[in-house]
Design a protein around this nucleic acid. Structure first.
Length: 866
RNA sequence: GCGGACGUGGCGAAACCGGUAGACGCACGAGACUUAAAAUCUUGCGGCUGAAAGGCUGUGCGGGUUCGAGUCCCGCCGUCCGCACCA
């Protein structure tokens, strides 16, 4: 550097620079992606937001991560698709309509406008020309088309089913939307009702959805395990038990079991309260009817299940044991048997199932152990109040004795499958899934109308494709609870498309999870008016290479989307069955909570914190009253521990917010939002600007530190490259800090040449660019580089700079570090050993002893054993 | 109950295949500049010990394997998440 003092550069002004660069990007349309781009494709997608009103910090974190990937891949030469849209149907719009008398559509579009502006102020490299909103008829029209196609393919059915009814939201909920017996949105206790519903037959794909999970290598293990458990595959045997002295329809009970090996331990049969046989017996026995109603009332609530006693009612029926027709088993109606799973009936084996044992002990049915653990003596093996569900040797089991449980399973299955009763085998091997079909009917207004017309004569008739979309009526009233579509007679009453007779529209709308099950496919050609997708575009862009979103969608959304691509494949709308090749689930943004003396929550903006001597104390900014600092929790309005992204962008700029969201915590973990952290990020923004400005001002310099600086720059470049690929943004941040420290040192020493300073500053700028794009543009132009850094190619790593000529090896004595010895990189093991043993510090530590063994790990370490 | 993840300074964390534990940042302490503050800079920062060089010790606890363990194995303890009467 010159000896004349360089004037301190001006501070970087984010407020001025950010909108300026956003305009430059928009003016040149550099983030719009063409489908005919011939470079290799890369599709990066963040879960699209519900337009609730304003973006929150969770969005900032999610979209900052996606944007880093998009910008990096673009620089790496990929044709990047990075679109954004709105998951715009849903209950909050209707709630707003009821509470504030606003139209749901207007409310939703106003929110979209606000949030689009907020996202744009973040400087995200999104292709806004592909923006979609699921509440737009141009979107849901195609969803209706696919519904009809699925229906024609047999992937949609209509049936009466017991459904979860949310009495607060006045709607049906899918099983997935009932949490601990309560509605996922309203928190109301869910009731059971019989309704006619539309279902997507997701169970048709149960096996494939299960098997294909193993191929999703770039999904978190956790999510794959959760989906596996949810699909709940089990292998077992369906066994027919003939009822003694009965005939006709109710002459047998079918039972599903995964443990046919324990059949000789059977003590009873139990059927669900909703089982048809229970109903037929109850017809003549009012006490049983009373019992069945009690069972229904207990419901499925968590607390009820935990505390509910195993209760049963002896029907008086007796079932013949399939392996010994002279053996009769009592048939109970029991409150713990679920009609929805298997056949709604089980055989009870008290010795080897805890539930059955509890039941048996209560009703005095006894138990017979039939599986003896390998290490125990069969003669003394008894079960009292703990069932044994492990493996072992068969005992007390006739022809099964001495087999393993596994052998016994197959022996029983083989025998019963071969035995024919009334023209059918007594038993059949069967794979059973826990997964149920997806009920999609919702009794709501603000959703995609189901394109069906109900005709007295013709039944449910599909709306002709040429009549799509079935548009929602604009003017609706929310004065009375329930679905306004039912009260809108002008909308509802239409002629039957088949016979022309007066008919009525289906007034249910689709679950909003349907909307989000295919939006990623629509993004590939959102301009199409006559078809949901363009096969060439879908097959080109899918699967999404990197999908990023919250873990809360691990089951619902991700499973529905996986089903949907399969259904689209079956109906020709997609050639791809898995929608998301790579999935990343990011952690939450959390914040400290604050309470005043009265115990009321106080928002962070009203807090001042002191930390003298390391002890943190909080005070109210206005009253100076002491505030107690509480636990760190997910940002939520109720606890007032929210920080508004708009405020942060206004006072620090988007780059600061983005940088902070990406630093410190690993992206899959929660990140704690702190004022100190934001200020640290803001300081770094200034530091980068200062260093780049200083580097741009270097004119002379003999270049003594050039080699060191170039090494640091290329090391950082290589490291950031590797870590961005693996989404380890916190490590990228650390490497960038390290490079800026090196550049700072070199500039301060004043011995760096202009070309080396410019190179390092350029690399620093490009490393920072995916994370802080506005600052990077400003730096890029300060360095006098051509065009936009957003369009610049990623710099090439000079691998030669990554290898050191000399390496400093730690030397251990019996595993404890005693010295450092510097050796040439190319030195062989013998040379290293000689150099180490000649080292002064090593000789001192050896105290004259000679090592018994010398372990040289090339390039790593040397260990001397004495 | 079943399944999964995790446990490292005051804090967020890093440590790739078993090879220098604590990179990088935050906070904090001392100092420089300043009338003062901010900003910036210098410096210290796991614990014990020492003037320093250094020594001892240290990754939830107890064992083990190894020349060498935060990392692998066995057994505990704790925290978090998911599922849950699924036959």
């Amino acid at each position: 550097m010159t000896s004349s003092p360089t004037p301190a550069p001006e501070r970087y002004n984010a407020k001025d620079a950010e909108p300026r660069w956003q305009e430059a990007w928009a003016a040149q349309g550099i983030y719009a992606t063409r489908n005919d781009d011939e470079r290799p494709k890369y599709y990066v997608l963040e879960m699209f937001p519900y337009p609730s009103g304003r973006i929150h910090m969770g969005h900032v974190r999610n979209y900052a991560m996606g944007d880093v990937v998009a910008r990096y891949k673009r620089a790496k030469g990929f044709a990047v698709l990075h679109p954004m849209g709105w998951d715009a149907f849903g209950l909050p719009a209707e709630n707003a309509a009821m509470e504030r008398k606003v139209n749901p559509r207007e409310w939703t579009y106003a929110n979209i406008a606000t949030m689009r502006g907020q996202l744009q102020s973040m400087g995200l490299s999104l292709d806004w020309s592909r923006e979609i909103a699921t509440c737009d008829p141009d979107y849901y029209k195609h969803q209706q088309r696919m519904f009809l196609d699925f229906l024609a393919k047999g992937l949609v059915t209509r049936r009466t089913a017991k459904v979860n009814w949310d009495p607060v939201d006045h709607t049906v909920l899918a099983n997935e939307q009932v949490i601990d017996g309560r509605g996922w949105r309203s928190g109301a206790l869910v009731e059971q009702r019989e309704l006619t519903q539309w279902f997507f037959k997701i169970t048709d794909f149960a096996q494939d959805l299960y098997d294909a999970l193993d191929g999703l290598e770039r999904w978190p293990e956790k999510v794959r395990v959760m989906q596996k458990n949810w699909i709940g595959r089990s292998e077992g045997l369906e066994v027919r038990f003939a009822l003694d002295g009965a005939s006709g329809d109710a002459s047998e009970v079918k039972v599903y079991t995964t443990r046919p090996d324990t059949l000789f331990g059977a003590k009873f049969l139990a059927i669900a309260a909703d089982h048809p046989i229970a109903a037929s017996v109850a017809a003549t026995r009012p006490e049983l009817q009373t019992f069945i109603e009690e069972c229904r009332r207990t419901g499925t609530a968590q607390a009820a299940i935990d505390t509910a006693e195993k209760l049963g009612f002896d029907t008086g029926l007796r079932a013949r044991h399939p392996l010994d027709p002279s053996w009769l088993l009592p048939v109970y109606v029991a409150n713990f048997v679920l009609m929805e799973y298997g056949t709604g009936a089980v055989f009870g084996c008290p010795a080897h199932d805890q539930r059955d044992l509890d039941f048996s002990n209560k009703y005095g049915l006894g138990n017979t152990p039939v599986v003896c653990p390998e290490d125990l003596d069969a003669a003394s093996f008894v079960i009292t109040d703990t069932a044994y569900d492990g493996d072992g040797r068969m005992i007390n089991s006739s022809f099964l004795d001495d087999m393993t449980t596994d052998e016994a399973f197959h022996a029983v299955a083989n025998r019963l499958e071969g035995e024919i009763l009334d023209g059918e085998p007594v038993a059949q091997r069967k794979v059973q899934f826990r997964l149920r079909d997806w009920g999609v009917s919702r009794q709501r207004y603000w959703g995609c109308p189901i394109p069906i017309i109900h005709c007295e004569a013709c039944g449910p008739v599909p709306v002709p494709v040429s009549d799509l979309p079935v548009k929602l009526p604009d003017e609706v009233s929310f004065d009375t609870p329930g679905n306004p579509l039912e009260r809108d007679h002008a909308w509802r009453n239409v002629p039957c498309p088949q016979c022309g007779a007066p008919a009525r529209r289906e007034t249910d709308t689709m679950d909003t999870f349907v909307d989000s099950s295919w939006y990623y496919a629509r993004f590939t050609a959102p301009w199409l008016t006559d078809a949901p997708t363009d096969r060439a575009a879908v097959d080109h862009w899918l699967a999404v290479d990197q999908y990023i979103g919250g873990i809360e969608h691990a089951i619902l959304h991700l499973l529905y989307a996986r089903f949907f691509t399969r259904a689209m494949q079956a109906t020709g709308w997609s050639g791809v069955s898995e929608p998301f090749a790579g999935l990343f689930t990011q952690g939450m943004v959390v914040h400290e909570t604050y309470k005043d003396q009265a115990g009321a929550w106080v928002q962070p903006a009203d807090i001042r914190i002191t930390a003298e001597g390391g002890e943190r104390q909080a005070f109210h900014v206005k009253t100076d009253a002491p505030i107690s600092i509480g636990s760190i929790e997910k940002m939520s309005k109720s606890k007032k521990n929210v920080v508004d992204p708009d405020d942060i962008i206004a006072s620090y700029g988007a780059d600061t917010a983005r940088w902070f969201m990406l630093s410190d915590s690993p992206p899959e973990r929660d990140v704690i939002w702190t004022e100190d952290g934001v200020q640290g990020a803001a300081r770094f923004v200034q530091r980068v600007w200062r260093l780049v400005s200083l580097a741009a001002g270097v004119s002379t310099g003999e270049g003594a530190t050039d080699a060191v600086l170039r090494k640091a720059a290329h090391k950082a470049l290589a490291a950031v490259e590797e870590d961005v690929e693996r989404l380890r943004f916190n490590r990228c941040v650390a490497h960038i800090y390290t490079l800026s420290n090196a550049l700072d040192e070199a500039l301060r020493a004043g011995s760096v040449s202009r070309s080396a300073a410019m190179e390092a500053a350029g690399i620093l700028t490009q490393l920072v660019a995916p994370m802080m794009p506005h600052l990077a543009e400003e730096c890029w132009s300060a360095l006098g580089r051509e065009g936009l850094v957003a369009q610049a190619a990623w710099p090439a790593v000079d691998r030669a700079l990554l290898v050191e000529d000399e390496i400093t090896l730690p030397v251990q004595l019996n595993g404890k570090k005693r010295a450092d010895v510097t050796v040439p990189r190319t030195a062989d093991t013998a040379t290293v050993e000689a150099l180490v043993l000649a080292d002064e510090a090593v000789r001192k530590a050896l105290e004259g002893r000679s090592p018994r063994k010398v372990i040289v790990v090339p390039g790593r370490i040397v260990n001397l054993v004495v």
